[in-house]
């Protein structure tokens, strides 16, 4: 592999592909956390989205219907999460962990019923999966989120719910309604993220195929200070590190590959520790978890 290969169209495409699932999931996390609901269940929502997407695309022979199903799959899990945390006021961290474990456990049950396999779906024909479309949709989702977050009343209410839930209630808005819809949107987007994994980056669902991408998306959200554009930038950065790591592997290079692999996490920890910007905006929504 030659050096000029590092910056090339192929590299750029590789970065964009890697960004896609992360961006969907971290935008989902943004909705949830901005409304004041801690969201560590992104991994489970992605897994369920990946499974629903691969299953629907396999049965209906359409990547688009699969992608739609992925969104609904994520949303179903998100609704369950909402039921426990918003209605029954369960601890959000504990519930989130439980949801992640649940998703891993439910998947084999579903594949057993539908395909008689223990956890993997059959691989999709090339016509039944995407070649680039999810990346475009992720970009559209980003644009809509940026507009909604900055320019609309809904965006303000969303931030309000996370910053000062009591004041929001006093002003006559329903906190529950805002948080419920945010969590559902979160599930939808994270499900799309999972769908772009199983329908685009791979060609089937296989157990645990998210491989920690849900948590990486959460890290991107935190690194991006809970704001849409910086969060997208963080996703891009993580994807660059990953694509770079792939290209540096097997080459004699000045940096050990393992170091490049830990870069995104290292940057996140530094960012969290507060090295970057002590301003108010860098902090988490104040009402998070309340």
């Amino acid at each position: 592999m030659n050096e000029q290969n590092l910056i090339s169209v192929a590299f750029l495409l590789s970065v964009l592909r890697g960004t896609t699932p992360l961006l969907f999931a971290s935008l989902g996390g943004l909705f949830s956390e901005r409304s004041g609901v801690i969201q560590i269940a992104l991994e489970g929502m992605m897994l369920m989205g990946a499974l629903a997407g691969a299953t629907a695309a396999q049965l209906l022979h359409s990547p688009w219907l699969g992608f739609l199903a992925a969104g609904f799959g994520g949303m179903a899990i998100a609704a369950l999460y909402g039921l426990f945390t918003l209605k029954f006021k369960a601890d959000q961290i504990v519930t989130g962990t439980a949801i992640n474990i649940l998703a891993v456990g439910v998947a084999p049950l579903i594949t057993k019923l539908v395909f008689d396999t223990t956890g993997a779906t059959p691989s999709l024909a090339i016509a039944d999966r995407f070649s680039f479309e999810p990346t475009v949709m992720a970009a559209i989702a980003l644009l809509i989120t940026v507009y909604f977050y900055n320019k609309t009343q809904g965006g303000l209410l969303l931030q309000f719910a996370g910053e000062n839930p009591l004041a929001l209630t006093a002003a006559g808005y329903s906190l529950q309604a805002i948080r419920w819809s945010s969590v559902c949107i979160c599930g939808l987007l994270a499900g799309f993220g999972g769908g772009s994994l199983s329908l685009f980056l791979a060609s089937s669902y296989s157990p645990n195929m998210t491989a920690g991408r849900g948590f990486m998306a959460l890290a991107a959200l935190i690194f991006g200070r809970w704001k849409p554009l910086p969060t997208a930038g963080a996703c891009l950065l993580f994807a660059v590190a990953d694509a770079l790591q792939i290209r540096l592997q097997g080459n004699e290079s000045f940096l050990p590959v393992q170091f490049v692999q830990i870069l995104p996490y290292l940057v996140t920890i530094i960012a969290l520790a507060g090295f970057f910007g002590q301003s108010r905006a860098s902090r988490a929504p104040k009402g998070l978890g309340q």
Binding site: P21, D242, I246
Partner: peptide, 10 residues
């Protein structure tokens, strides 16, 4: 052993 997306990128 279970990361086809990464494998495909490689």
């Amino acid at each position: 052993w279970n990361n086809p997306a990464k494998a495909k990128e490689l």
